[in-house]
Amino acid sequence: MLIKRIVSFLTVLIAVLILCSCGKNEDRGKYEGPEGFVRDRDYSYRGDGFGGFPSLESFTAGTDDGGIFTSDDLASRDMTLINIWATWCGPCLNEMPELAEFAELLPDSIGFYTLCVDGYEDTDNMASILSKAGYSGKTIISGTGDIGNLVDSAMYVPTTVFVDSSGQIAGSVVGSPRENLAGCYLAALNDALENTGLQRISLPGVTEAESNG
């Protein structure tokens, strides 16, 4: 009798859950956590990451369009953002659409790449995620040398590193901001630019977030 009740309760629960999950397909792919679990800080953790990141001086890397990524690509820009993510990482996928929009706003002097840590194994899946998120830029999927070291030292995903023209890491964002994503990344970018002795920039329609030091 008790078992019957539990089974029927579970069946109803499962049915409700399945119905709920079917209705959750929002365009922007934003995952709304349960009430009360939204972080009230604008910023994720900024700084050297966990134990610092290696500079990108000597490396080879391949991108998803069959091209290569080299230190020449870094040298031709004031600053390059590399967003490190994984296909299994919920928060990485959640920030992707807004990050893609942010990347579109960047001037030519700022480069933007994503780096998918399991892109080589799961290429189709990765490509599908990127296109659904509306990302039109390049994604690094393989590499050796300092790129390999960078991937190894990125213990958390998502992690975004800011690399200057000589390959030094000028800043990073670990984790992903819940609110004002563009503003947070802009602030981190500007801090990185300042660290390298360059001018801060502004982007149309983006309110720069407060620096959390």
Binding site: L17, C20, K24, E26, G29, P91, C92, L93, P97, K132
Partner: peptide
């Protein structure tokens, strides 16, 4: 058993957003 069925199996399998992200 409820923890196993719901939190380990069902929710990660079915509760996703548009990009296929799960938890």
């Amino acid at each position: 058993y409820i923890v196993l069925a719901v939190f380990v199996i069902l929710l990660p399998s079915f509760f996703r957003n548009g990009l296929g992200a799960s938890l």
